[in-house]
């Protein structure tokens, strides 16, 4: 394996605007996967629909570009079918927290071993500039003409509350940090959420690259990511100062470890049918 060879590079032309935060996220993802020594056929990138959700199109790996809001359920099905695949979800905050909010909650409850990278630009890009579930109050758009009147969803606090086993935030403009957090999330045994702040250069004139750059800071080196109460408290910080890093991390059984046949047996896809045993089930109907 050549050290500097980017195995995941697809060299495809993208539909993203020049300067879009998605480029930084894609680069960090490719670097993370390369550095982890993974091969393209071992990885599945799942997405719903949106600008961020085009990620599977631009990376050399298995890809599942599904329905809007529905990136997590197929990712769950894939991991259950073949526990040896590295399953990663890349989708936007509309896809993950809005249309797919129900799946977000229940995937956390399952603690299935997938990494969930949410490209969060606080706006809907593909549909040209409506509020997203994380848009700040007062943020004016062509729909929310007087400004957003609903409170923004706090994905970090929500995930911690629901018992997620890995909760982190990063920024598309901090390549090194993002790559590092992604690697940890991919290697984490269980569901791992990384909420990734990114500017939308075309539609979000408030939460710009400069806006985030001025506000984000790394959680202290002494920060204890195993303290749930503290993690929840730090998750409330938003506004002038936005903390980044791993807020909360805990070891707990994954879905695969809780389902007996997945834990003990080969991957479901590699098991054979036992027709003789199934035929005997008819005796119960005699």
């Amino acid at each position: 394996m050549e050290a500097n060879h980017n195995r995941f590079n697809k060299c495809s032309e993208t539909a993203w605007c020049p300067g879009c935060g998605n480029f930084g996220i894609l680069n960090a993802l490719e670097k993370a996967l390369n550095e982890l020594g993974l091969l393209p056929h071992e990885v599945v990138i799942c997405a719903g629909i949106g600008q961020a959700a085009k990620t599977p199109q631009y990376i050399n790996a298995n890809g599942f570009n599904g329905l809007h809001g529905r990136a997590l359920p197929p990712a769950t099905g894939i991991k259950i079918a073949n526990k040896h695949l590295k399953v990663i979800v890349n989708s936007g905050e509309g896809d993950s927290y809005g249309e797919g909010g129900n799946h977000f909650m229940h995937t956390i409850r399952r603690n299935i071993d997938i990494a969930h990278f949410v490209h969060n630009n606080q706006i809907y890009g593909l549909t040209k500039g409506q509020a997203s579930p994380t848009s700040d109050m007062g943020f004016a758009t062509g729909i929310q003409t007087q400004g957003v009147v609903t409170e923004p969803l706090n994905p970090i606090a929500l995930a911690i509350t629901l018992g997620a086993s890995f909760v982190a935030r990063s920024f598309s403009g901090d390549a090194e940090h993002l790559k590092k957090v992604m690697k940890e999330a991919i290697m984490h045994n269980g569901y791992a959420l990384v909420d990734i702040l990114q500017p939308c250069i075309s539609f979000n004139k408030v939460n710009t690259f400069k806006y985030y750059k001025e506000r984000v800071y790394h959680l202290e080196e002494t920060y204890d990511a195993t303290d749930k109460q503290k993690a929840f408290k730090r998750a409330q910080e938003w506004g002038d100062k936005i903390p980044m890093g791993i807020f909360y991390k805990q070891k707990k059984p994954t879905y695969t470890e809780c389902v007996d046949c997945l834990k003990k047996g080969p991957a479901l896809v590699d098991t054979t049918e036992d027709l003789e045993k199934i035929e005997k089930f008819m005796d119960e109907f005699c």
Partner: peptide, 22 residues
């Protein structure tokens, strides 16, 4: 494996994911 999904949307999407994976 039998998984009780959060809704029918998830049910069929999970089925399609598993089927994609063989």
């Amino acid at each position: 494996v039998v998984e009780q999904s959060e809704d029918e949307i998830a049910a069929l999407n999970m089925v399609i994911g598993a089927s994609y994976a063989g």
